[in-house]
Structure formats: structure tokens, C-alpha cells
Amino acid sequence: MIRVKNIRKTYSNGNFNVDAVQGVSLEINQGEFTAIVGPSGSGKTTLLNLIGGLDVPNSGEILIGEQNIAELSENELIDFRLHHIGFVFQSYNLIPVLTAKENVEFLMLLQKKSESERNERTLQLLKAVGLENQTDKKPNEMSGGQQQRVAVARALASKPDFVLADEPTANLDSASTQNLLNIMAKLNKEENTTFVFSTHDQRVIDRANRIITIDDGKVVSDVRNTIA
């Protein structure tokens, strides 16, 4: 479970301050498929960064399970991310010199998993995202949709408690988007992994079972999507 308690984040931008997140509190339960939506500049990326421990709030608490991540040192936080949080980036951010298999395997190498465990998990995930025949391809040999599917497989490779995905479909066409959403929904169900998206893509919003809307750094609505 993710618990966010009254967090605030202010950026200093030259002579003026930007209140990116203003007293946000929310709870995300295990297994939820949640979309954080809002217009550009509303603070959804900042909120995702704070939840993922990539940024530190000026005030408030973020608890992942029972761990208040603000109490972790920089190195502990990096280690915490490795074992508990998966990331999917808008521009995929795969390592260009590694193959699809190696990109997925990479986090497990950092986790010092055995070779057999790595191989088994990698092939399982690549099969789940429909890329079992593309294992030896490098990112520049794959389409955007394929690269993002590798990125999803990589995010899940370390068996995280939850996956944070910021605008994961922003660079994808309609077919690739639907394909990716199907895969993430399937993995959400099969592995009970929590997914939290920041997005303003209606196709993603339609598939989410919870929609949190923020504007000007504040939560303006938090609704369950029963249609999804």
C-alpha cells in the first residue's frame, strides 16, 4: 500500500517559486490500476516522482508499506527503488547497447539474482509482453510500441510492489497503446502488481479502475471507474 500524507513540493525557479504539489494526501492499495490525470503543469509528474522516491517532498510523509521513504538515506532509497518500485518512462529509456533480453535482465543483475532465475523471469516477462521472438533485438531495431513493452517487462523484472508509469503511451500509436494497456492490465491481474499512471490519454483513463485528478498541485477528484 502507498500512503501519501499531506505532501508539499515547491520548486524554486529563479526569482519565483512554483508550488508543484500542495498538500496532497491519498492511499493506493495493492493491485490497483490507477491513473493520475490532469492538464500539463498540474503536478502529476512531480507527484509520481515523489511517490517513486526520485524527489523529496518539502513536507509530508510517503509510506510504502510501513516504510517512510523520507527516512531513507540516498543509497538506501536507491536500493529501496531497486527492490520495491518499477518505472516505465515516456521515452522508454532502454539501454541502447543492450538487447531486449539484457535490458529486462539488467535489474535482476543489480539484485544479484542467479542466472537461471534471471533467464526464467526474463523469458516469462518477454513472453507476457509478446516479445519472446525479439529477445536479441536492440532498442533501435524495435518499434516504439515494442520498446515500451520491453520497458514494462523491465519494470516488472525486479518483482516490484508497484509500477509507476508516466505518460507511457504518449509516444505510441493507437494499436500499440491498446496492446500495451492489455499487457499491463493482464500483468496487474496475474501478478497483483499495482500500476500508477500519470496520463492525459483518454484511452489509458478509460482502462484505469481508479482516476485521481489533480490540478494546480491539488487533488480535485478521486473516483472509481467501474466501467474498466
Partner: peptide, 15 residues
Amino acid sequence: KEIGMLLSVGMNKRK
């Protein structure tokens, strides 16, 4: 971006 990604996903600074 690549280094940022590595730090994000859990590659520690020593590595």
C-alpha cells in the same frame, strides 16, 4: 537521461 534512468531504477552511485 541514461544515468538518470539507472539511478531511478536502482543502480547505486558506487556502481
